[in-house]
Design a protein around this nucleic acid. Structure first.
Length: 266
DNA sequence: ATGCCTAATGCAATTAGA
């Protein structure tokens, strides 16, 4: 089973690129972020035509998250994180799909720091950490996937010294991500490629993709029952080089079937 | 310190992204 996350940066403007990538990569389940479209303008028909069931939570102009699956029905379990009912941003959607509970998320950017946007990022992160604890405690196969807007370590930034005061790399943000991981989550990409430079985002500015001036901010986190099944992980970075592309590239993992009992003795 | 580039809105210029 192949599961991916992709910040499309506008699902309608990006539809040709999204469909081309779906056809090429053939992911079974996909979490999308930054739809930048209200519910009624989500391209449901185009995605169903290519074989995907889909749920989404849109919003005018900004944010917006979706889950796609070609492995059958998506059973939505929640939209929005608990803890701040007045929060109107569409940033979290969760569903059970093919035996996996998947939380698709778009964590706030948080710039400028300091400021109200950064405070919102930290609050949102705390709400995520609380909810993640409850998900882990179920013991179910759970995944958190999306744009976390955090570079976890120096290895995840082309020039760490330039990002130290940025909301994506600030000490309190890295610390929050580390606390989340320490609950027992496995960062799939970093676990499969411990020493590699891996980026998932390249700015539109300054020819960043050509210079490989990138960031690793899109992550797939696995609960212990899923981590045992992890067999491969990667970034489809060539997609960042396509015409009219997102500033993010799709990130994916491959999980062994539950019946294969990877990592267990018979 | 700021703009660079891009999308959405909506038709000019602003907001937001990271």
């Amino acid at each position: 089973m192949k599961i991916a996350t992709y910040n499309v940066n506008g699902v309608n403007g990006r539809l040709p690129v999204l469909l081309r990538w779906l056809g090429e990569a053939e992911p079974d389940i996909v979490c999308l972020q930054e739809l930048k479209a209200p519910d009624e303008r989500f391209p449901e028909g185009a995605l169903r035509e290519v074989g995907y069931d889909v749920i989404w939570q849109g919003q005018k102009s900004w944010n917006g998250v979706a889950i796609l699956s070609r492995l059958g029905e998506i059973h939505e379990t929640r939209r929005g994180l608990p803890g701040e009912p007045e929060d109107t941003h569409s940033r979290y959607i969760e569903a059970a799909v093919n035996g996996v509970l998947i939380g698709g998320l778009y964590l706030p950017n948080g710039n400028p720091r300091p400021g109200p946007k950064f405070e919102y990022k930290l609050r949102w992160f705390e709400r995520l950490i609380s909810h993640a604890r409850e998900l882990l405690d179920t013991g179910l196969p759970v995944m958190l996937a999306g744009d976390f807007n955090v570079m976890p370590t120096d290895l995840d930034v082309y020039k760490p010294e330039r990002w130290l005061d940025d909301a994506l790399f600030a000490p309190e943000v890295k610390a929050a991500y580390a606390r989340l991981l320490n609950q027992g989550w496995t960062d799939a990409l970093r676990t499969m490629h411990p020493d590699e430079k891996i980026y998932t985002f390249w700015d539109y500015f300054r020819n960043a993709y050509a210079r490989d001036a990138g960031l690793r901010i899109d992550h797939l986190l696995l609960s212990p029952p899923l981590a045992k099944r992890l067999v491969a992980a990667g970034v489809d970075s060539h997609v960042r080089g396509w015409e009219k592309t997102s500033d993010h590239a799709p990130v994916w993992i491959e999980l062994a079937d539950k019946s294969s009992r990877k990592g267990r003795k018979a």
